[in-house]
Structure formats: C-alpha cells, structure tokens
Design a protein around this nucleic acid. Structure first.
Length: 913
RNA sequence: GGUCGAUUAGCUCAGUGGUAGAGCGCUUGCUUCACACGCAAGAUGUCACUGGUUCAAAUCCAGUAUCGACCACCA
C-alpha cells in the first residue's frame, strides 16, 4: 500500500504501537526517497531569494560501482546540503559522472577480447566507440542508483557527464584557447609509457612501488687498452643495446683518466664514449653509469646535455625491438633482462649480481611497470600557478585539515608540465586538425606553432573545420583530468554564456573529496577556475579520511577486503550505514573500517524508533504547539531535557561550523541514548500511563513531542529517512510537507522560561539521576539488583526530597524512598552519601557488618585521597595565582563536596564500631 | 633522502594544560508492560619512550622508537 507522502507512508494504517518491535529501514528509505524526488525537494532554483549554498559532486567513474570511500564522501556532502537547507539556503548539489578514459576503455576492451576475441584495432575506432557508449548506457546508471539508495539529495535534473555535448565543447574551447596562448604545445619528450594500455601517462598516474630487484655488475672493455675494463652497475641489462655512453662523476678520481676514452658495448657491438656528468653518484654501485637516453629520464637529460644519440630498443608494448641482436629481438622486456644477463655472463662480462631494493614506477590502471619512453605528446604549461598557490597558502581557499595546504604548496613548487595527450580512443579527441597534404610533415614536426595555424595548415578550435574532407584530426584523446578540471563551471553553463546557475551558485561553497586527488583534481580545478572564470571555484575543501580495512590495508578489489555498501545498507539501512560511518570517521586521519560501527548505527536507529513507538502507545495526537513557557506543570526532568536539547542544538551548530562531523554524530548519539532515553524517559515513564494525573501527563507528552521533534530535525542530515518517517508518523510534520524542507528554528525550547526555575529544576534532576545511580550501585553490591522491595531511608535529605521521592524510588528500583531525620540505622545498615541526602538501605540483619565495614573503608579511602589532592592544589599559592578563576572556584566547590561526603561516610563507619 | 601525520582500555576511536572517555568486546544480574538491535551493575589505562617548560602535561616543546602517507630518488 502506498499512501500520499507525509503520513503512514509505509506501514499503512497501523498505529505505531502495533508496529514491529524492530525498525525495518529498507522500505521506509525507498519510499521516502521517492517521495522527495516526486516533490522535487532536491531541485535548486537559481531565481530564489535565499542565500546560495552549492557543492559539485566529485564525479565518480561512469561505469564505477559504489565503494565505502564514495559512501563517506557523499554522506558528508549530503549532510552539508541538508544542513544548509535547514539553515535557510537555496541548495544546489550538482551530480554527475566522469567518462574515466583509461578505466572505462580498459573494461570495454576486456569485454571485447573475452566475448569476441578481438582488439579495438580489429573493429576500428568508430565501432569501438559505439561499443563504449553502449557499455556506458548499460552500466552508467549503476552508481547513480546507488547514490540514490544512500539518500543523496542531489539535483538529479542537472546531472552531468563529462562527455555531454556542451561539456565537450568546453573542453575543446579550453584546449584551443590555451594553444593560442602558447601554453599548450606539442613535443617529443620523455614520458611515462604504459606498455599495456599503450598510452602515455601523466606523472601523477605513476605509482612508485618498492621492488626486490637485482643489481647487475658488468664490464665494458676499454677500446684503447684491450684487457682492461670499466665496471658499471645496472638494474636493467635489457636496455644495454640502447647504451650510447658511460658516465662518471667529474670529481671521481678513480675514473678521471677514462673520461674522453671509448669503451666497447658488447651487443650490438659499438664503441661508446666515457663522459663526465654531475648527476652520477660516485657512491652508488661502481660509480659508473651506463647511459640509455631512450629509456630513462635521467639518462635522457644527460643525453641532452652531451648531445647523445637516442636509440629506442623497445616496441610500444615493451618487447625488444633490436633486429641486430636476434637472441633478444621480440622478447618481452623482463624475459630479455634475464637473457641479456645470461649473454653477458657467457662472454665473461658479468661480474656479479646483487639483491637490490628499488622503486619502480607502476601504471596506476594497468598495474605494470611503466616504460620511460620518448614520444610525441601534447603538453600543458599550467596557467595561474601563482594565484592558485597564493589562494591556498593564504586561506582564501580553506583546506581542512589545514595541513593539506602544505602538500598542495609542495606540489605547486616543483610543478612540471602536464602531458595531456593519451593514445586512447575513449575521451575528448584533441581538437586539432592537420591539412591533409601536410599531415605527415606536421605530425613529425618537433613542434607546432601559431605560425602553422596562420599558414592555414593547422586548425585548432572547438568547431571542426568547415571543409572536413581536407583535414585529418589528431588521433589522440585528452587525459580524463583535462575535462575534470573544468567541472565546477562547465557543469553549470554552456561555453560563452553566463547562466543563471553560475550567477547564483558559482563559486561553489564546499568541495568534499579525498586527499589522494589534490594534484589530479583539486589544484587543477583552482587553476582552471582562475583562468576561465577569473574566480576561485570553491571556498572550502574538506578532505575526507581514507578508509582502510581493520588491518590498516587500503580497500581494494584484489584483496577482497572492500565490503559492498549495498549489502551493508540492506543489512543495516542507509541511515545506519551513514550514521555509523560518520560517528567514528576521524577528522584528518585514516579510518579503519569495522562493521561493528555500522551495526551501532542500525541499533541507534532502532532506539529512536522505539522511543517514538513508546510515545505513540500513549496517544496519537501530537502536541506540536506545546510551549514550555506557558506550561505550569513542568517538572525537573522536563526542564532538564528541554535545556539539554537547547544545549545540543548549540553544540551541533558549533561542531558543524568546524566541520567536525564525528563530534556532531557523537553529540546526537549521546543526547538521545543517555539523556533522553536512559534518564528522561525512565523518569517520566509513569506520566505516560493512562491513569496518570492528566496535567502531568499533558506536560510530559508535550515535552516529549517538542524535544523529539526538534531532535529529529537536528538529526535529519545524518539519518534523513528515519527522521522523515518518524516526523510524519508522530504527527510532527503536516501532511504533504517535509522535514527536509523545514527551516531550523533559532529559538530555543526554553525561551521565555525563568532561568532561576530552569537552574532549580536541572539541579534537582541531576541530583535525582546521580543519587539513583548510586542507589542502584548499592543494591548491586549487595546482590539485590533485581529486588524491587528494597526501601531506602533518607537522613539530612534535600528540601525537595518528598517531591521527587517517587521518581528516585522508580529509578533506583526501590519500593519507596522516605525521609526520616531521626533515623538511627541498625549496626551494619548499608548506606550512601548522595546529593539528595544520606540514604540507608535497611535490611534487618541480612547484612554482614564486617562486609559493610570493608565497603565503607574503601569508599572513605577513596574520598580521603580526593580531599588530600584537592587541598594540596588549593594550598598551592601559585595555583591560586595562575589558574583561571573558574578553575579555582570549581576546585573549592569540589573540596567542599568531598569533605562533606567524607564526614558523613566517617559517621556511618563510626556507627558500625 | 625530504615533508607531514599517528602512537590513549582487548578492538575501533574521542579527548589539545586543571577529577582519563565512548561504542564494541568481556564479567555478573535482568524474558522490568518502547527497545535483547535492550536494561542495570562491573573489571580493564605508567595516555609509546626520555628529557624539558609549568603550580599543574595524555595535552605544550625537544629528542628517541615504531607505524603510515606523500614527495623526490641511486642507475
């Protein structure tokens, strides 16, 4: 049965008291999400008068599936968005997905291989791209659906994709603009080449990994002095065919005499020079370095300095390309390594092999060692680096935690040009066309310049040439991040027109993302924002924790240690998952995921649900108009919980202001469980019975409702579905309206109530709660915890004792609590000194006098220690002089309490003889 | 090698000068008319180590150890 949104959404006409004992989130969550969508609650109105609040989602890979990192990240964004709505903002949370060049293409290629046994080249560019689009249509919606399941309040009417037509136009236009400015250029450079994906990669896509390698010591014969050798050490003997020199440090006295001489490269045989270069470390290996400019970044630079030849000995796929050495030609580079070493050994040129740990750069996607390789690529010299560095350094863009600003600064400091071209097909094709008859020359040109453009041989623009038959487009596509860096504004408007959306919502307010993509994305977005909108793209960046497994390992598919969030949601509810994760997620440190945390979230949802269920058993009509200031029957427990609720609102506000999401969660948890349920509800339980005095009953129902209604609103950003459900079901929210759209009132629940009355009530409530705990403890010590017939007798009781005696009895599980100032306890009667008075538990001889003596002695000892400690402090002149006045006052008060209690305990003890 | 971070109960984590905390787990007792996804009571800590500053340090400073991240790398 599906009713109108607002009331009885899921459980139909069942009264709350007839509901299942345990909260069942699944259906509730789905129904409310649909109700919000139907009512267009998430849609942003650029024409709104309200202050703007905006976030753009870090777009997940279009074919990706939800993992815990997404859950954490998007829950935080949803909390921010929902909280902003409650604070009266017009909220735009703009969602979308990223085409994720290599990742997606790799998946489709794998499918093609598995299903049809073909490669992308077999079917051609056009057919392949069709397949990718098909794949995107089929799998692209998954992560979006999963985000909806989580409860994300994104404006789905504005969902974007980095390969949408308008978005693509932005990418091309930006490319053309930067080319015209000379910031984008084409050149033959040493790049990180992935031999599996067959494309160049940016430095950021290379992951250094520690490897146990071998260091081969080999020797080159001196041409002039046959029989004499120069020894070198290398981890890569398979590149030997590309060696064009041996380098030594100019300061190295051992080798000075060899500089300028020739040595013999064994295969293919050649004479190569020995030269001096500062880069060489005399301490490492033999102090002599073989130079392979084609396959090592440092060697390449040495090669440039000494004008050496570049000999590429690999095919793009990493196999050896060296017909002169048929033994190695065609072998995979790792096979060739062993073979080359064996060949050296046969010739007596291998001296020794040592175990050696070194760092090898791996391709992020394909997870194989990258091959440094010379190739023709497009590069970008970053724009606006100074403004970007400054904006972060000065805090104009606020990084949280702030220490990431330093990481940002370090990267900006040593920033290298960005290789933006990829030899892939899935992505934004580089918007460069070569005139047909000149294409060969232009493609091989060492550089392309504006002169080529002016000569009409080159076309660089977001618009294809009008006479396409005369042109050939560049084969490469752009790095995925070359589109992502435009995300904050390219999602909001078409190129060349300022949209209402941008006017209202740009720059965005908060960005929530992982610190692992500061370089990939965050820093680049700032540069793009400055360059193309002349404005920073966001004001705050909140970096989330990285989620690890319980052993501290990164979550990864291959380890199988990454729980499926959908399973967790089915088991614990989306709200349970959200709350459990948020309550423990540390700010600024890694999070070790433990499913027990999520279970806690579910249990918490159940607790709230049951508190409401309990309330509903006492009548369906909600007292939403209840005013504490005009109620004559407020009891201490009412005042206490109302005050705590107001305090909660303040604490939550303060924690939100600092983005301390775990603290918000903790405060919400403690209030409901420890204060509201354990104390308040237990104290006023009797008032909810039908036979209770009507005025008391009304007051308690009223207080319950206003506190719960306010509480649910405060909790809403964390547990949106549950709170919406309960507000509807409890009648706190009028039919057809939504909690999620309700503004958070500024007024406190106790506004208008005299503060003296509040203080008096809270004092009593606190005394009752504390005393009850002390009495329960006393009962438990005498193994009477379960007995309900215990009577307590109070001496020197507080003046309000009679008024609260029934509650004290209820909370301590006693038959009654009575005042008797002249009471003389029998020898051995256990007792406790509490803020409500000296309370005895007469047991008519059941108690062992000696046992009670021991118990009291222990307590006296403890109190004596505290008194001594406190006296020591207060007797210290420097403490009095230096400590804050309130600290001293607190200490004085404490001492008085300890001393009073100690005296009373002492008297009790004396009575026992 | 450089930078940054972490080290608090068996576990996951709060706590940032002034009485060591939460949840889970553990022990004991409760089928108490909201909740066993629960209630009550309890045990468990040289706050990594060594110095220093201070009347007072888990908290501030310096150093040490261990773990981790990032950056740069010696082939």
């Amino acid at each position: 049965m599906r009713l109108a949104p607002g009331v009885g959404l899921v459980y139909g006409d069942l009264a709350m008291s007839e509901l299942p004992k345990a909260y069942e989130p699944t259906e509730v969550e789905k129904s409310w999400y649909q109700a919000w969508l139907d009512a267009k609650c998430f849609e942003a109105d650029p024409a709104s008068e309200k202050p703007a609040y905006s976030i753009v989602i870090p777009p997940p890979n279009v074919t990706g599936i939800l993992h815990l990192g997404h859950v954490l990240n998007n829950t935080i964004q949803d909390i921010l968005a929902r909280r902003a709505r409650q604070k009266g903002c017009e909220v735009l949370w703009l969602p979308g997905t990223d085409h994720a060049g290599i990742a997606t293409q790799t998946k489709v290629e794998r499918q093609l291989r598995e299903e049809e046994g073909k490669t992308r080249r077999d079917i051609g560019r056009e057919a392949f791209l069709e397949k990718v689009w098909e794949w995107k249509e089929k799998h692209g919606g998954i992560i979006i659906k999963q985000l909806k399941r989580l409860g994300c309040s994104c404006d789905w009417s504005r969902e974007r994709f980095t390969m949408d037509q308008d978005y693509s136009r932005w990418v091309s236009q930006v490319f053309a603009e930067l080319f015209n400015e000379g910031l984008i250029y084409r050149g033959k450079r040493m790049v990180n080449w992935c031999p599996v994906s067959l494309t160049a990669l940016s430095d950021e896509e290379v992951i250094p990994k520690k490897q146990n390698s071998k260091l081969y010591y080999l020797k080159y014969e001196l041409v002039d002095e046959p029989g004499k050798y120069l020894e070198v050490a290398t981890t890569r003997p398979e590149t030997l065919m590309g060696d064009v020199a041996v380098a030594v440090n100019p300061k190295d006295e051992r080798y000075g005499k060899y500089v300028g001489k020739l040595v013999r490269r064994p295969f293919p045989e050649a004479e190569i020079p020995v030269l001096a270069d500062d880069h060489v470390d005399p301490e490492f290996g033999t102090g002599a370095l073989k130079i392979t400019p084609a396959h090592d970044k440092a060697d390449f630079e040495i090669g440039v300095r000494h004008e050496l030849e570049i000999i590429d000995v690999f095919h793009p796929d990493g196999s050896v390309n060296c017909p002169e050495v048929p033994e190695l030609d065609g072998l995979d580079r790792f096979v060739a390594r062993k073979k080359a070493a064996a060949m050296l050994e046969e010739n007596g040129l291998l001296i020794k092999v040592e175990e050696h740990e070194n760092n090898v750069g791996f391709s992020e996607r394909a997870d194989v060692p990258i091959e440094p390789r010379i190739s023709m690529q497009w590069f970008l010299r970053y724009p606006e680096t100074e403004r970007t560095a400054k904006a972060v350094a000065t805090g104009r863009i606020q990084y949280r935690p702030t220490r990431w600003a330093k990481t940002h600064a370090n990267w900006m400091d040593g920033i290298q040009d960005w290789c933006v071209s990829r030899q892939l097909w899935w992505g934004h094709r580089i918007p460069v066309w070569y005139r047909k008859e000149k294409v060969a020359a232009l493609r091989d040109a060492e550089s392309l310049t504006l002169a080529d453009l002016e000569a009409g041989d080159l076309h660089v623009s977001e618009e294809p040439p009008s006479d396409p038959e005369n042109w050939v487009q560049d084969d490469d596509v752009l790095d995925t991040w070359f589109s992502s860096w435009l995300w904050p504004f390219a999602t909001m408007e078409k190129p060349g027109e300022e949209s209402d959306l941008v006017k209202k919502f740009y720059p965005t307010t908060d960005l929530v993302t992982g610190p692992d993509i500061i370089f990939f994305w965050v820093a680049r977005m700032i540069m793009a924002g400055f360059r193309f909108k002349d404005e920073l793209p966001f004001r705050n960046v909140f970096f989330t924790s990285i989620i690890r497994d319980i052993q501290g390992r990164k979550m990864s598919k291959s380890l199988g240690n990454s729980p499926d969030p959908i399973d967790l949601m089915e088991k614990y509810g989306a709200d349970g998952l959200r709350f459990g994760l948020m309550r423990t997620a540390p700010i600024g440190a890694d999070l070790r995921f433990d499913e027990a945390q999520i279970e806690e979230g579910r249990n918490f949802a159940n607790k709230i649900y049951n508190a409401c269920r309990f309330r509903r058993m006492s009548g369906a009509e909600a007292r939403v108009d209840f005013q504490a200031s005009s109620c004559d029957h407020l009891r201490p427990y009412h005042l206490d919980i109302l005050a705590k609720c107001d305090e909660l609102a303040e604490k939550v506000e303060a924690a939100f202001a600092d983005y301390r999401f775990n603290e918000v969660g903790q405060q919400l948890y403690e209030f409901l469980w420890s204060e509201f349920c354990d104390k308040f509800l237990e104290a006023v339980k009797g008032d909810l019975r039908e036979e209770a005095e009507p005025a008391r009953r009304e007051a308690t129902l009223g207080v319950f409702d206003v506190v719960m209604a306010r509480y649910l609103q405060l909790l809403h950003p964390y547990m949106p579905h549950l709170t919406e459900e309960l507000c509807a079901r409890m009648g706190y929210q009028a039919k057809g309206t939504f909690l999620m759209e309700k503004t958070l009132p500024e007024a406190g629940l106790l506004d208008g109530v005299e503060s003296a009355m509040i203080d008096d009530g809270r004092g009593r409530a606190t005394a009752v709660y504390e005393s009850a705990a002390r009495l329960r403890n006393l009962k438990a010590e005498y193994r009477l915890a379960a007995r309900k017939d215990v009577r307590f007798v109070v001496r020197h009781g507080a003046d309000w004792l009679e008024a609260e005696a029934d509650i004290l009895a209820l909370l301590s599980g006693a038959a009654e609590v009575t005042r008797a100032e002249e009471y003389q306890p029998e020898q051995g009667t256990p007792g406790a000194v509490t803020s409500a008075g000296e309370i005895f538990m007469p047991l008519d001889g059941l108690i062992d006098v000696e046992a009670e003596k021991i118990r009291l002695d222990k307590e006296i000892e403890k109190n004596t220690k505290e008194v001594a400690k406190s006296k020591g402090k207060l007797g210290n002149e420097k403490f009095i002089a230096n400590a804050k006045p309130e600290v001293v006052a607190l200490e004085r008060q404490r001492l008085v309490e300890w001393e009073g209690k100690l005296g009373q305990l002492q008297k009790m003890r004396d009575n026992l003889g």
